[in-house]
Design a protein around this nucleic acid. Sequence first.
DNA 1: AGCTGCCCGTAC
DNA 2: GACGTACGGGCAGCTA
Length: 925
Amino acid sequence: MPRLVLIDGSSYLYRAFHALPPLTNSAGEPTGALFGVVNMLRATLAEQPDCAAFVVDAPGKTFRDDLYPEYKANRSAMPDDLRAQVQPMCEIVQALGFPILRIDGVEADDVIGTLALEAARTGTDVTISTGDKDFAQLLQPFESGGSIRLINTMSGSVLDTDDSVMAKFGVHAHQIVDMLALMGDTVDNVKGVDKCGPKTAAKWLAEYGSLDGVITNVEKIGGKIGENLRAALPRLPLNRELVTIKTDVALDSAAHELNLRPRDVDTLKILYARYGFNAALKELGGTPPPSASERKVSMRGTEAGWARTGAAPVEPPDEKLGQKGTYETILTREQFAPWLAKLQAAGAFAFDTETDSLDALCANLVGLSIATEAHAGAYIPFGHDYPGAPAQLPRDEVLDALRPLFADASKKKIGQHGKYDLHVLRCHGVTVHGYDEDTMLESFVFNAGASRHDMDSLAKRYLGYDTVRYEDVAGKGAKQIPFSHVSVEDATRYAAEDADVVLRLHSVLRPKLAAEPSLDAVYRDIEIPLVPVLERIEANGILVDAAELRRQSADLGKRMLEAQQQAIALAGRTFSLDSPKQVGQLLFDELKLPVQVKTSTGQPSVNEEALEALADLHELPKIILEYRGLAKLRSTYTDKLPDMVNPNTGRVHTSYHQAGAATGRLASSDPNLQNIPIRTDDGRRIRKAFIAPEGRRIVALDYSQIELRIMAHLSEDPNLLKAFGSGADIHRATAAEVFGKAMDDVSNNERRAAKAINFGLMYGMSAFGLAKQLGIGRGEAQDYIALYFSRYPGVRDYMERTRQDARDKGFVETVFGRRLHLENIHARNQGLRAGAERAAINAPMQGTAADIVKRAMIQIDRWLADVGGRALMLLQVHDELVFEADTAFVDDLIAGATQRMAAAAELRVPLLVDAGTGANWDEAH
DNA sequence: AGCTGCCCGTAC
DNA sequence: GACGTACGGGCAGCTA
């Protein structure tokens, strides 16, 4: 049977553009989308179809625009970087031998629909290659024996039968248009039924068969969503028409001659070379341009084509990388022996632990997986316990055999989020040295902006591979079973794959980092050495006086009750003070107080600012604020923290997320110990419950104004440098400069204003924001800012330089070379773009501070290892480190740690550290 | 019952 | 629209 492939070029172009990082070739031309499309086309050709066409949208109005003027109205113009790739794409498509179809006044979808149906009716097997699910509506049986199937080469998914459509969407293929009509399509500005997603639409269609059936039975559908449906009724017939792909477009004869031409190898070589598609070039027998020596010279520049982002592209995953490996379950000594030999012979190995708990500090080791080469791995179960479980090797025997390998620093260990495994192994008496590579951290340093750095996401992103997920073998939610109850077969395909995938990811990520020396240094010198440091800090934990917190909870509860009673008396009815919705109804609907602040979604806000603004009009807002302050402290801190005390250690162990914040800061959770209150007296009291054990003291060391000092360093502003050099109170000095006074004459209010300016600057704040912050007019705020910049022109220049840098390069970097890519720096949407600019201003300062603190932690940890447990590092709160130390060691600790913190960077200004000590964290400030 | 988005508030 | 980076609690509504 003849085969025809129809490629939805427009859909791929957009998807590749948004899915891939913004790449450029050596001439600075954008190539990201091109790259994605070319790889897709090469994959298509490898299938050797008889006929094919590359179909793209043509400019001009279509019948849908006539039907519905707002069609695609909220779609922004094609980004310049994408537009620039259209012509080169056409050239490559031509050279590859694909006919290109571009028909004025007809969308690509309708051209594809028409050709597909026609061909299938005449007995052709049609493949539509697209990223757009809407095409599922075309699937149907044909008398001729022809067929239509969909393939999405970016996700690898295939839809070829009604059953597969049902599995994916929960409706039959012929119901797809009805489902789309109900759901709507935000991208095309087709407004469906509010709150109706695929599930709801599928439910209705299963019940009533079709859109018409749903419309007939509209009164039977209850609840809010029923109302939404009735409100949307008039739109639905039009929606249906808009989402229906046309299959009867008039096409001229050329559109029916879809023969592939032989590819034009010479032209392709030129084009591939020009755009830096080296893998594709090599396939043609061409030589990738740079020789090894040239490569070295130009690597940091433009040769590889990634200068704009400094990030290598997500290469077309080498096909082999995305294939399943072969995995072995080790149940006997005979099976274990050859693996042990492999580990002993290998210079490096990947490993992963499996446990029965997410909490590493009380987790039991259930099994361990290892891999020494890609596509192979072994799982050694020893704690699986379920009816019919096979006999397993004794845990201690396995650990004893592996212990020397883990302890040998010259044997490199590779992991993914290895801090967890380090915890688990240490709890089981296995010390790990030489933990040298971590794929999570490689990914984080390579592209901190990416939202996820978990293994499943990385495998998908860098290998094009779908891993077996934890929930696939252990279930999730209420149905989750402990890993020890998972069959060793399931456990093996999950766990051994993990170790294997770590190796494969490392083989992809390692060269990407190696190509960027500054990123490699951040990874090698900061992130990797920090792993064991954080592991120790987390394991140390901090002693918490749970009884004290419970007393505070009781006290807060009493005061909450009083506030609540007052509030209800004032309101004249009961309501929940915890519910923003109910508070809003009461204040604005019933009491008719004026709405002065709105939330981001346009609702009347009842936040602190809003309630403060109403305080003069009514007594109630004040009471609600009082209640809310107390409730926050109680629910988040005094109630929660006692529950978090680890029963084994009697201490609270937070976890630090090393790949948490895009700027390079750590984040803390479970519990978050980086947002313990300090500003109010009630809040501050909570810090009294963080205590040192008998014979020890809490020591808190914090950098003084570290981010402002970094701003001085980066901007090289003479006035700012001078102020820090002289050791003056920086906010007072700023006020003196801005208001033209002697330091001693600066009023408290002027200092407050100067402080707000200083902080605002680091966050990219506008005059509007400063005015709001200070409660002054916008003009006045603008004057302050102008005055500031006239006194500190270096700061103004620096800010502008940073914005420009971000626009030119697509990223900003810290003093130590850590990068933050700014996805939205060229966004059409002004809000997004402005946000990216503010992030660009802030990231070098916040990120450099983070780098410095991390460097200090590494040095201090090394030093503390030598003093034999007389002091422990307990917490990091961005610019502060908290320790507990033997009373007799406190002075030594302060001297030694302070010195290392101050020496963690050499800036144009000194780094000052304030020290405090006491029986608890509050006293240590 | 579990998940998600929203609103709000804590830290640096 | 308007100040950067996080985490988390409670509510409310949706999904399963």
